[in-house]
């Protein structure tokens, strides 16, 4: 049998504890190289839609908060359009990048993104997904970046029909992906292990 000539993906390695140097140099005072850290501002002008804060922390298997993680989020604009050349359905809001990157706070472990509530994006079969934020987490001790999603506690009807949430066999685990609304802040704490272990995806 002839083997098809596919290459293998470069294997992942941990981002390590010093990810800030390369990805958010300004937050550790290594300024003067880049004017601004990538992904520091998601809203760049008068963007349409509801402005929200998306916040949370990440906990390890002992319940200790991670203070050296980096979190990236990627989401659609208020109309459900991604600001990406790979978007097929039209132009996204020019004042919203959809991409946020933060090193968690080195004392509290918190991330806090100033962003927009995303609109709904279709699944390949045409069904609409519930509004969600795509999340990627890297840190020391994480060998391959972790993918998860945040959904919204005030979108119960949409969440109930979401094709990705429907893939979760143990329904009580869906709760680990629902960011809880308080005024205009949605909070989602992420648990890497334990009883409340967050659902992570193989995308």
């Amino acid at each position: 049998m002839t083997k098809l000539a596919y290459l293998k993906e470069s294997p992942s390695q941990t981002a390590g504890p010093y990810v800030h140097i390369g990805c958010t140099p300004n937050v550790i005072g290594n300024d003067g190289i880049y004017p601004q850290d990538l992904g520091a501002a998601m809203i760049t002008g008068p963007a349409k839609g509801e402005q929200i804060t998306f916040a949370g922390r990440i906990f390890d298997g002992t319940g200790t908060v991670l203070r050296d993680a980096m979190v990236e989020i990627w989401q659609a604009d208020a109309q459900g359009i991604y600001n990406s050349p790979a978007e097929t359905r039209g132009a996204a809001d020019p004042n919203f990048t959809g991409f946020g990157r933060q090193a968690v706070d080195m004392e509290s472990g918190a991330f806090t993104f100033e962003t927009l509530k995303p609109g709904r994006v279709p699944f390949p079969d045409g069904r609409l997904q519930a509004p969600h934020i795509n999340i990627w987490i890297v840190a020391r001790g994480i060998n391959l970046g972790l993918n998860t999603r945040a959904y919204f506690s005030d979108e119960e009807t949409a969440n109930a029909d979401d094709p990705v949430l429907a893939r979760i066999e143990h329904k009580h685990r869906i709760q680990t992906l629902i960011a809880q609304k308080e005024r205009n802040t949605y909070t989602l704490d992420i648990y890497l292990q334990g009883e409340r272990e967050t659902v992570f995806f193989d995308i």
Partner: peptide, 12 residues
């Protein structure tokens, strides 16, 4: 050891 999810990842 303490930073690796223990449950299977969900695929879609």
């Amino acid at each position: 050891v303490l930073r690796s999810p223990q449950k299977p990842l969900i695929s879609f």
